Amino acid sequence: MLERQRHQLLLELLDEQQFASVADLTTQLNSSEATIRRDLIKLHKEGRLEKIRGGAQRLQGAPMPSTKTHITGSAFLVNKDKATTAKRAIAQRAVQMCDDGELIIVNGGSSTFMMGEFLSQRDVSVLTNSYYLAQYLCDNGQNQVTVPSGEIYRKQGIILSPFENDSIQNYRSKLMFTGTAGIGEFGVMETDSLLVRAEQKLRKQAEKLVVLADSSKLGHKSNFILYPIDEVDVLITDDGADAQMVESIRAHGVEVILVPLAQSIAQAV
């Protein structure tokens, strides 16, 4: 992540929380404590925040931030740098499910973003609410790319509309691909109700649901159940996944594809 991107995220977190400790910022921005402390000093000198003992807060007397609703959950640019080898291997396997000439629906997220590298080499049309994926495909491929109307939520890199009529209902696809905050017998999890609403609108336009989740997501729970587990058609994860958890998901009729991670690492090297 570039310094300016990290600074923007840091300031957005202060808009949301008013105050944040160094430890909290270290976790949320996936950065070292030394890096965060340097950021706070620099932004304090620039008059963009107030550095206080143990952390930082919004400038006293500064205009209140926009009333635009914040979405709960970690930032795309932070998640993108986590479990990258597994996510890339999972994304590659997901794209192998696509047929040339077809339209697919791709929900925004760091795992599905990784599909861009492989989709850009294919004759596949893409409907996505991911600002970052749409930008990547436009810059690197010849894919026909469609995005719904709406506002861009920078932190998650997601395009969301408050209206039902946002063009999504005009499309139909065999496959929808989505990431998740967590998955298990309880279902597919999400962090925010706004994201749940947007993703369920996309799901209505696809015949099959394919979930991309690295092994750390199996068994992990979050705030909301996006889909019951028996609504998932395919789960693609890496072979580091807990065997018992995999079997419990398969017992609900889900096809589970295990991507061999060791082989993927060897190919990357």
Rank of each mutant, 00 (worst) to 15 (best):
A181C: 13
R197D: 07
K204S: 13
H252N: 10
D214N: 12
A243H: 09
G219T: 09
V147F: 11
A213Q: 06
D239C: 01
D214Q: 07
L226C: 03
A241Q: 01
E247C: 09
K174L: 12
G141K: 06
V210T: 07
F163V: 10
L226P: 02
I183N: 04
K174F: 10
D233V: 02
Q244M: 14
S215A: 09
S167H: 14
I158H: 03
S161M: 03
Q169F: 15
F224E: 07
L202R: 06
H220L: 14
V147M: 14
G157D: 05
K217S: 05
K221L: 14
Q200P: 08
S215W: 00
G157L: 04
R250F: 02
E151P: 02
A251I: 07
K221W: 14
H220S: 15
K201H: 04
A241V: 01
L160R: 01
A213D: 02
E231I: 04
G187T: 04
D239Q: 04
G150E: 04
K204H: 12
V232P: 05
N170K: 15
G157R: 03
A241R: 00
G253M: 02
A206H: 05
Q244D: 15
L175N: 12
K217R: 12
S215F: 00
T146D: 12
Q205V: 07
P148V: 01
V254Y: 01
A243Q: 14
I225F: 07
P162E: 00
